[in-house]
Lab assay of single mutants.
Amino acid sequence: MQRVNMIMAESPGLITICLLGYLLSAECTVFLDHENANKILNRPKRYNSGKLEEFVQGNLERECMEEKCSFEEAREVFENTERTTEFWKQYVDGDQCESNPCLNGGSCKDDINSYECWCPFGFEGKNCELDVTCNIKNGRCEQFCKNSADNKVVCSCTEGYRLAENQKSCEPAVPFPCGRVSVSQTSKLTRAETVFPDVDYVNSTEAETILDNITQSTQSFNDFTRVVGGEDAKPGQFPWQVVLNGKVDAFCGGSIVNEKWIVTAAHCVETGVKITVVAGEHNIEETEHTEQKRNVIRIIPHHNYNAAINKYNHDIALLELDEPLVLNSYVTPICIADKEYTNIFLKFGSGYVSGWGRVFHKGRSALVLQYLRVPLVDRATCLRSTKFTIYNNMFCAGFHEGGRDSCQGDSGGPHVTEVEGTSFLTGIISWGEECAMKGKYGIYTKVSRYVNWIKEKTKLT
């Protein structure tokens, strides 16, 4: 034993070699072989497995989906700052455009905790909710729209109204504003409101030439003092309507412009014939205590009207009353817009006519005020429907199939267009061939041609 100890002390290297040989010859039971080890760690190889990531292109799944990435790591994937920024906006807080917040056709661009709407022409605001041009839906104005110097929408209202708090709607500024039905039992019968379409306001006024200088022999019209197929109006439903009495009662109609003036057809009036105007009328054979009678003290036909040349060209006249009318729910003026808007309103496509005229061709006159909704007829169809001249200051309205029309005794009465609950004068009943005849239409004086003249002559002093 002493000898062994001496050998170990003198030859430590020998001992180490012996131990190493023993270990190498022993069977290893701690580690699995290569094949079995792979069965336990069965993990798919990654895209760049075996390579240094710093030297390969980034992978979106590896960089940002398996674990949260930084902007720089995302930049490695896209290799483009702009594309990385677009991805980053949604990656950080989701897609803010998912709810489609942009209105009126706006395009949404996502941002971090926010979004941006790219608005089409005519709109602005956070969600493109603000109209900035009158060309689109009248700028959301209830009545009139004008573009300011910086191309912003400025709404306005006709006389007797003021802008509401929203700067879009119009509200009454006087007790009985024009064009409004205020009798409670008839307010439910107000005709369907007309909503502004998209309009090209630059070209809204037709490029028409008034044929002022045409000389033409007097034409022989049949029954051209021209509501057939209409309905009984309720008291106060058309408070701007008046009836004219002269040699015979209810020979023509008219509309209240203001307390002192009536507008009617020029062919209705004769110099030297006494005319009485009755406002607030409903049943011409009954006294309903809503009527107001006034005498006409002055007749002003349009300066281009000449019955000797043509009885229905420039067929418009103004009547001055001896005493002002007292405005109330049964006696209310009709609204008159400017030339541009009167023309736009007419193009809405349908209007209402009213009167006490004959209820059928050569038949009896109506006792109760009649009204009828009539569609506008395109000019080409209008011209083809008659052998008589249709001037540019006239328009056609009615039904091709016949059966409904204005008729004798309705002449001078109103053709009105309702705009968001307020009625505007767009025409004056003038003439036609018979009444409600198939293929024939009622012919009306186009008020847009005469609004400046009306307003100039009827100013209240």
Rank of each mutant, 00 (worst) to 15 (best):
V181F: 05
R43N: 11
T84N: 10
M8H: 11
E420P: 01
K347H: 10
Q143T: 02
Y115F: 13
E340K: 07
S107Q: 10
C102M: 00
T342K: 00
E320T: 00
V227T: 08
N222S: 13
T29C: 11
P333I: 00
M8Y: 07
N343R: 08
E456N: 12
C134V: 03
G254R: 00
V154D: 10
V228Y: 12
V296R: 00
E116P: 02
I297L: 08
Y450E: 00
V326H: 13
E79N: 09
C252D: 00
E61T: 15
L163C: 02
W261C: 00
C178H: 00
S11D: 03
G105L: 05
S406V: 05
T84K: 12
A192M: 10
H34W: 08
L211Y: 10
E67L: 08
F55L: 15
V243P: 01
T461D: 14
Y201I: 10
E76S: 07
Q143R: 00
D249I: 00
G272S: 02
T133N: 13
K274A: 05
D405I: 14
T290R: 10
G229D: 12
S329R: 09
S11N: 09
V183P: 11
G349Q: 06
T422H: 03
K45L: 10
G427I: 00
C407P: 05
K311R: 11
I336H: 00
G13C: 13
L211W: 13
K152A: 11
K234Q: 07
K347A: 12
D223T: 13
N166F: 02
K260I: 04
T158R: 01
T389W: 14
T290K: 05
K39V: 07
N313H: 12
A37R: 04
L383W: 15
T342N: 03
R191K: 12
G357P: 09
I334Y: 00
R373I: 06
M437P: 08
V359N: 09
E82C: 03
K387L: 06
A279L: 01
K68W: 08
I262W: 00
N313F: 08
A37F: 04
C396K: 02
D315L: 01
C335Q: 01
L41R: 09
W261T: 01
S148D: 08
L244M: 06
R294G: 00
S148Y: 07
M65Q: 12
C117N: 02
C134L: 03
L211A: 11
S385A: 12
F196D: 14
F123C: 02
K362R: 13
C178A: 01
H314K: 02
C28G: 13
T417L: 00
L318E: 01
K51C: 04
E320V: 00
R298W: 01
R358I: 06
E142P: 03
L52E: 15
F221R: 09
L319G: 02
F196V: 09
K440L: 03
E98H: 11
E72H: 09
G355K: 08
G351F: 01
I344M: 09
N36Y: 04
H267V: 02
G50M: 10
S350F: 11
D338M: 04
K168H: 12
D198P: 11
K311W: 04
G230Y: 12
I300V: 11
M437R: 10
S169M: 11
P414G: 10
C145Q: 03
T225E: 11
I390A: 07
S204W: 07
P197C: 05
G58T: 13
S423F: 15
T386D: 05
R3P: 10
L346T: 07
Y391H: 12
K274H: 03
K188C: 05
G179Y: 00
T417N: 11
Q370A: 04
L367I: 11
G409D: 06
T81V: 10
P301N: 10
F121S: 14
C145T: 03
T133C: 04
C435D: 04
V181A: 11
G402S: 13
A9C: 13
T386G: 08
I7V: 12
G125E: 02
L23C: 06
P177T: 03
H289E: 14
Q185T: 11
I299M: 08
E281D: 13
V419W: 13
R180G: 03
G280P: 02
N42A: 11
E231T: 08
N310D: 10
V56T: 15
V154I: 12
A317G: 02
I309G: 10
T85R: 07
T215V: 08
L189R: 10
F360P: 13
N48E: 15
L372E: 11
G230S: 12
V416A: 10
E66V: 05
V248D: 02
I429R: 14
G351W: 01
F55G: 08
Q185E: 14
K51N: 12
A308V: 11
R449S: 14
L369I: 07
E433I: 04
D93L: 11
E323T: 11
T276Y: 05
A337E: 01
G413W: 10
R83N: 15
I284G: 08
T342S: 14
P239H: 01
T209V: 11
Y371W: 14
V56N: 15
V202A: 09
E285Y: 06
D200P: 09
G94Q: 09
W453N: 00
P414C: 10
G349E: 04
S411L: 11
E67Q: 04
E129M: 04
E208A: 12
A317I: 03
G363V: 07
D212G: 09
N100W: 08
L367V: 13
N452A: 14
W453D: 01
A207G: 09
Y91E: 15
N38R: 12
G439A: 04
R75L: 07
Q57T: 05
V183W: 11
A149R: 09
T186H: 10
G236M: 05
T422F: 03
V92L: 11
K247H: 09
Y91H: 15
L376Y: 07
L319M: 15
R449N: 15
L383M: 08
G272I: 02
G398Y: 04
Y305T: 02
H303L: 05
L346P: 02
C178I: 00
G357H: 09
V419A: 05
L211M: 13
I136R: 14
C145F: 01
E82H: 10
L14I: 12
Y201S: 09
P235K: 09
G50W: 06
S25Y: 14
D223F: 10
L211I: 13
K188A: 13
K347P: 01
P333H: 02
P375G: 14
I300N: 02
C252T: 01
N59Y: 08
L376G: 03
V269L: 11
C119F: 01
T417W: 01
V92S: 14
C435Y: 03
S430G: 09
K446A: 08
G398N: 03
E67W: 04
S169D: 10
G413P: 02
E76V: 15
H415A: 02
A337Y: 00
S406M: 11
W240A: 01
S329E: 11
G357F: 11
R294L: 00
E320F: 01
E53R: 06
T209C: 06
N213A: 07
G254K: 00
K152P: 06
E67H: 15
S406K: 12
Y352M: 04
E35W: 06
C178P: 01
R180V: 04
T16N: 04
C407R: 05
N104V: 02
R404Y: 08
C407A: 04
L460C: 09
F251W: 07
S217I: 11
L130W: 07
A266Q: 02
V243C: 04
V92H: 10
A265H: 01
P101I: 05
V248T: 09
C268Q: 02
S220G: 11
P44A: 12
L244R: 00
S385H: 14
Y441G: 02
Q237K: 04
E420Y: 12
L14Y: 05
W240V: 00
K137D: 15
